[in-house]
Amino acid sequence: MFVILLFFISGILSGFILRKKKKLIKISENFLMVSIYLLLFFLGFGIGNNNELISSFHVLGLKALLISFAGVFGSIFLSTLLEKFIDKRNEK
């Protein structure tokens, strides 16, 4: 799956080289949206076509909710500590 990283890095390089060609960048942004739509359609198709996934959708949703709350809690805890730390240093 490191092929993904290779594509990403080549994308960044070509974007940097072509950054002046606004029209081309605009076109690639549109293609980007289209490819997101297509892939999510395929993901949806895979789910709809898989009885096991459909019947466990609510369980997956609950797990997803737990994961996002865990991530949010962890990050707001640490970022609030960071903010307090920066405030304290600025007071001195």
């Binding site: 080549s10 994308g11 690639s28 892939l39």
Partner: peptide, 25 residues
């Protein structure tokens, strides 16, 4: 070949994300 097609769309997608990142400095 659903899997092959979506894998290649994914590669193109990642490439394009890279392009938008590289273009916006």
């Amino acid at each position: 070949p659903v899997e092959t097609i979506s894998l290649w769309i994914l590669y193109i997608l990642i490439l394009l994300v890279g392009v938008t990142v590289g273009a916006d400095l």
